[in-house]
Nucleic acid binder design. Sequence first.
DNA 1: TTAGATGTTACTTTATATATTACATCTAAC
DNA 2: GTTAGATGTAATATATAAAGTAACATCTAA
Lengths: 148, 148
Amino acid sequence: MRYSHRLSDAVHILAYIDIYHDSDLSSTAIAASVESNPALVRRLMVALRRAGLLATQQGTATPRLARQPAKISLLDVYRSVEEEGNLLHVDDKTNPKCVVGGNIQETLRVAYDEVQRAAEAQMAQITLASLVDDIWTREREKKANGSQ
Amino acid sequence: MRYSHRLSDAVHILAYIDIYHDSDLSSTAIAASVESNPALVRRLMVALRRAGLLATQQGTATPRLARQPAKISLLDVYRSVEEEGNLLHVDDKTNPKCVVGGNIQETLRVAYDEVQRAAEAQMAQITLASLVDDIWTREREKKANGSQ
DNA sequence: TTAGATGTTACTTTATATATTACATCTAAC
DNA sequence: GTTAGATGTAATATATAAAGTAACATCTAA
């Protein structure tokens, strides 16, 4: 099982830039929210820029979304930052002299591709806009409960 | 990232037991096909037994499927051997004092659950029987091509 | 000119899946 | 019963990828 947080951190960065667009958007400020480090944030921002989701300018802490949040899906972010991009992994060291070992890799690859497509179709339905909405809803609920 | 091959190896073990039910089914023989080691095979077999997919008897190399291959889905195997069982992972170290950091974990958990459900629904459609069929089809095709 | 930002790379640390080893326990054959 | 060889199980070691850290070239704006 993988323990990569690249997708979660990338969504975090985009949500932060959307919500705090009038505040300090330096990699250091964002890293403080992610509780990670500025270099990781910058690396992820480069990946998001290359994927056309983010616009940045070297020397200035002025990143901005390259598209409306409603036009950025979780799948877009996933494909930006997950290099390999497979949720399930084939064991590529099986014995080719065995009926099972000699064929199961391709068999599983096809099966896993179907699972991947189903997962990605769902990811395509989730937008940054809906995630940011959900963040705000939770924030309001916390405030409401806190003042009871 | 370090990939887990537990699901692939578990499917391999079940397919091997189904296909080679009249041959040597010791953990050593199966490990030779997986190109792994007997202890790993035994651990996975224990997980499959606990999940009700496999019947084993201590002291004897006589494992057998506890259900018909058509009644064993990829999802059954996945749930047997993947302890945590989440394809996507939330970064659980974000700053609670920030609107984003304080809420994104739950927001992403809900979103990831939706993706997980879509993936698992697809896994439920894939049976061990169909995977074994595919293995045999590929084996026949290899033989046909080889004798041309 | 300079302070402070991003872009980028190299190296270190940490986490964890798998390999390895060992051994208790069980089964079947003798 | 004894024994060979199997599973069940745990402890430890190893390998490797993710994340952390540090350093620095480059760019921007004051």
